[in-house]
Amino acid sequence: MPLSAAASPQRTALTIALIVIAGAAVSVLLGVYGYTHPARGYAVSLAGFSSPGAVKAWLATVVVLLAVGQDISALAMYGVLPRIRGGRWASVWHVWSGRLAVLVSIPVAAHCLYAFGFEATDRRVLLHSLLGCAVYGVFVAKMLLLTRKGLPRWVIPVMGGVLFTGFVALWFTSAVWYFRTRGFAP
């Protein structure tokens, strides 16, 4: 067996590992920044909403709905949903719903990071802080992995699944909690 063929799986594994480490570093840096900076209390508010909490809860819900669209389009792209297989709609929707999900999540994340920082006042808040940092690290890793050729076919779907799970868990620890304690009124 040629040396280059034997080195290729090792090089691929090293590439994946380094990218995952880069994503983990982003997560840790966000957590350290959130923990060490004083909370500023800045609020993201939009006209028509009763409070910054309502804005965040509804924007987070939009993110999760877009993430569900991401999963559906990914399943179509990978041929798991044969009835809607084919056509360019799946890949176009996948790219744009992903961009929109991240774009919509940024004001929510910025508000959490600047207004509250990294908090551990109770289990829900600690879990939310950890998930918030982790989601953006996973996002960075997934985007870096997308630029690499020759990865095993499972890598991108696994990272997408981890990202989806992170967004849904963030939603449960924030928006669902908000809706349960404050109601659904915008």
Rank of each mutant, 00 (worst) to 15 (best):
Y78T: 14
R153P: 11
G161F: 03
P107I: 06
R182C: 06
R40G: 11
L163N: 02
G137V: 00
V20M: 07
P38S: 05
G161M: 06
S8I: 09
V138W: 02
F179E: 01
L3A: 12
V63I: 08
P38F: 03
A134K: 01
S174E: 03
G132N: 01
A54F: 00
V125A: 02
M143D: 02
L29D: 11
R40M: 09
C133S: 08
M159L: 10
Y35V: 07
S8T: 15
Q70M: 15
A67Y: 02
V102I: 15
V168M: 00
L46K: 12
G161W: 02
A57Y: 01
A175M: 03
V176D: 00
L100S: 06
Q10H: 13
V62Y: 04
R83A: 09
D71F: 12
V102F: 13
W93N: 10
R153E: 12
F118E: 02
F118Q: 05
D122V: 07
K142M: 15
S105K: 02
S4W: 12
F49Y: 10
I106E: 12
G86M: 06
T15F: 08
W171T: 02
M77S: 07
S51K: 00
G137K: 02
G31F: 04
L18F: 11
L3H: 14
A185W: 14
G34V: 00
L100A: 13
L146G: 11
V155L: 14
T181E: 13
A57E: 01
G31A: 06
R99L: 14
L18M: 15
G161K: 04
S27A: 15
R85Y: 09
T12P: 05
S4G: 11
L151V: 09
A57F: 05
G53A: 05
R40K: 15
L113C: 09
